[in-house]
Design a protein around this nucleic acid. Sequence first.
DNA 1: ATCGTAAGTCCACACTCGTGGACATGCAAG
DNA 2: CTTGCATGTCCACGAGTGTGGACTTACGAT
Lengths: 205, 205
Amino acid sequence: MSQDAPPPAPARRRDSAATRAAILSAARETFTQRGYDAAGLREIAHAAEVDTRLISRYFGSKEGLFAEVVDLAYEKSMMMTPEHNAQAARTLLTGGHEAPGATGADAAPAEGLLLTLRSASNPRAAAIMRESIERNYQQRLADALPGTDTEGRAALLIAICAGVLLNRHLLGHTALDGPDTERLIPYLHAALDAVAKMPEQQGDR
Amino acid sequence: MSQDAPPPAPARRRDSAATRAAILSAARETFTQRGYDAAGLREIAHAAEVDTRLISRYFGSKEGLFAEVVDLAYEKSMMMTPEHNAQAARTLLTGGHEAPGATGADAAPAEGLLLTLRSASNPRAAAIMRESIERNYQQRLADALPGTDTEGRAALLIAICAGVLLNRHLLGHTALDGPDTERLIPYLHAALDAVAKMPEQQGDR
DNA sequence: ATCGTAAGTCCACACTCGTGGACATGCAAG
DNA sequence: CTTGCATGTCCACGAGTGTGGACTTACGAT
């Protein structure tokens, strides 16, 4: 009890850095769960236990806040190399339901991609995400690919992952969420390899 | 000129069937271009040159209208068999910019999938689309697949196609829309084959 | 020619959205 | 202690949304 904060305030009172961080965290979660359009500033502010008007103060506008959230998501998102295609296929098809609050490097690529999928319908949000993906993620993935056309193939890999997550989590396809989903892992693995590896390496395990 | 309609009215005046069709057509286009949430009933009504209130009269609600549009889109959407993977890969990566008004069987699967992608962020719309896809499209595709786990693999194929279209048309990934996009066709083709064909058929062309 | 009914039209409600400006407050420097 | 400025708070606006109810019109059958 002697550890109580000296001021009688129950929480932080005047800490702009902490406030910014709280807004950012709440925004990441809300945007990921509901998408850019459906997520309201009032809802984000309520989740962050912060006055609504402070968001506009710190981030300028809803777009500004979103851009910062997207950048953060893809900066920290998991790296995917051709060697990890097997694990990626498994994670995409079976994971994703646990650890919804995982932040940072622990977060699966699903975090950023889910955010992208749910906000892609808004053209402004789509432009922001495209820019961030190409700058933060696609470039690193392309550098890890062998052979030629690495940029395009990296984009193709991202597209395949996004498509699976879309059908599984947004549409909720029963065929991708049932107990038989594990049997699809080899197929998805082969599809990823077909894009990530060169033809002569296809058979490698 | 002698073929003019007998009544001096510039357009149809009292034709419930034609009005319904006009609303449906305008709704399909508007929903596809802007997504479920962004498309307003007033906007659809204006495009169909119809009073807004008529939509609620004919279709009950926005959801009812959307459900009918989705069903129509997937009923008529193109069939995709394993033999057509090459053409599908080409169409997904290079086509889609022409014939935006194509209706019926001529419409690429892009039509229905674009509608799906832009509306997937809304949970209600997602549920409607999932139901329609599984009923109208996925089942036929699964029947055309060899081997086992045909339902799941059909869902996987749809997911891959959706992902490519998402990155290309919604996000506007430059790597998937540039002049080098044609070089990616073999890779996408191989990925589709990896899911659609059995392992021993992989090399077949 | 007349009347019933379907087809089409208009007004309005309750609600949510992002954002602007004016005001109160507490921490840190003088 | 006093002052200055960043930090946090509140009210409100105008523009959207989907939809309900009451009204007017024209077509088709009697």
